[in-house]
Structures are given as C-alpha cells and as structure tokens.
Deep mutational scan, measured.
Amino acid sequence: LRTVEMKKGPTDSLGISIAGGVGSPLGDVPIFIAMMHPTGVAAQTQKLRVGDRIVTICGTSTEGMTHTQAVNLLKNASGSIEMQV
C-alpha cells in the first residue's frame, strides 16, 4: 500500500474516473482508478496510476462501498485528501 496526499480546492477537480464497488456493472469488485485526466489534481501528484485500487479515501475504507458512495466521497472532499492505494 502507498499513501498519496493531494490538495484540492473547492472548485478543483481530482481528474479521475473510478470503477467498481458493490453492485457495479463489473460485479462486486474493489474500487479502482479507471481513467485520469492529465491536468487533474491526481495526475499532478505523479503518484497515482490507472488501475490503482483505492483502499481508503480520507481514512474511510472503500470495502463494501457502492460506486455512488465512493464518487460522492471523492466529489465532496476538499482541502487535504489522503488516499491509500
């Protein structure tokens, strides 16, 4: 596991798309980074990659989380965001 910290302002975009989660079209698979926009906050860290499994978001485990719950957690996060992948 590695921990990645990002700074995100209220109008900034992380610039990632995620897939997976409980009840997702892919089945109940762990949440992972499906796409990254090169100008997004996540890409700027140069520490995240497409395919990385997201284990925690700001200390909250993604295990058993639906896709929608994970998306909302990421969208609503601002300031210092910590992810374990």
Score class of each variant (00 low, 15 high):
Val50His: 03
Ser24Gln: 02
Val55Cys: 10
Ser13His: 15
Thr45Val: 03
Ile57Thr: 00
Pro30Thr: 01
Met6Cys: 06
Ala34His: 11
Ser17Cys: 14
His37Pro: 05
Glu5Lys: 15
Thr45Ser: 13
Ser17His: 13
Met83Thr: 03
Pro10Asn: 11
Ile81Gly: 03
Gly27Pro: 01
Gln44Cys: 09
Leu1His: 07
Thr68Leu: 12
Ser17Leu: 12
Ser17Asp: 15
Thr56Ile: 00
Ser61Trp: 03
Leu74Gln: 04
Pro38His: 02
Gly59Met: 03
Val41Pro: 07
Gln46Gly: 15
Thr66His: 10
Thr68Ala: 14
Arg49Tyr: 13
Val55Asn: 06
Glu82Met: 10
Met65Tyr: 01
Thr60Cys: 12
Ala34Leu: 07
Glu5Pro: 03
Gly9Met: 08
Ala70Asp: 01
Gln44Tyr: 05
Ser78Ile: 09
Thr56Gly: 09
Gly9Ile: 04
Leu14Thr: 04
Gly40Asp: 01
Ser24Ile: 00
Gly15Phe: 00
Ser13Thr: 15
Arg49Gln: 14
Thr56Arg: 14
Glu5Phe: 15
Val85Pro: 07
Ser13Pro: 10
Cys58Met: 12
Thr45Gly: 06
Ala77Tyr: 07
Val41Gln: 09
Ile16Cys: 02
Thr11Met: 14
Thr62Phe: 01
Ser80Lys: 14
Gly15Leu: 01
Gln46Ala: 11
Asn72Thr: 12
Ala70Pro: 01
Asn76Tyr: 08
Lys47Arg: 11
Gly9Asn: 09
Thr11Val: 09
Lys47Ile: 07
Leu48Val: 08
Met83Leu: 15
Val41Ile: 15
Ser80Leu: 12
Ser24Met: 00
Ala70Tyr: 06
Glu63Lys: 12
Gln44His: 08
Leu73Pro: 03
Met65Lys: 02
Gly23Lys: 02
Thr60His: 15
Pro10Gly: 09
Asn76Glu: 12
Ser17Gln: 15
Val55His: 11
Leu26Asn: 12
Glu82Asn: 13
Asp12Lys: 09
Phe32Met: 09
Thr11Glu: 15
Met83Ile: 14
Met83Asn: 06
Leu74Trp: 04
Pro25Asn: 08
Asp28Cys: 04
Ile31Asp: 06
Thr68Val: 11
Arg49Lys: 14
Ala70Ile: 01
Lys8Met: 15
Gly27Tyr: 00
Val29Ala: 08
Glu5Val: 15
Ile16Lys: 05
Lys47Asp: 12
Ala77Pro: 08
Thr56Asp: 08
Ile33Gln: 05
Gly64Pro: 01
Gly20Gln: 05
Glu5Ser: 15
Ile81Asp: 02
Ser80Met: 12
Leu14Met: 07
Pro10Leu: 09
Gly79Leu: 01
Cys58Ile: 04
His67Gln: 14
Glu82Gln: 14
Val85Arg: 05
Gly51Phe: 04
Val71Tyr: 12
Met35Thr: 15
Val71Pro: 05
Asp12Arg: 07
Gln44Pro: 03
Gly27Glu: 04
Gly79Val: 04
Ser24Arg: 03
Leu26Pro: 00
Gly59Asn: 09
Ala19Pro: 03
Gly23Arg: 05
Ala19Trp: 08
Phe32Glu: 11
Ala70Leu: 01
Thr56Ser: 15
Thr39Lys: 14
Val55Gly: 01
Leu48Glu: 03
Met35Asp: 15
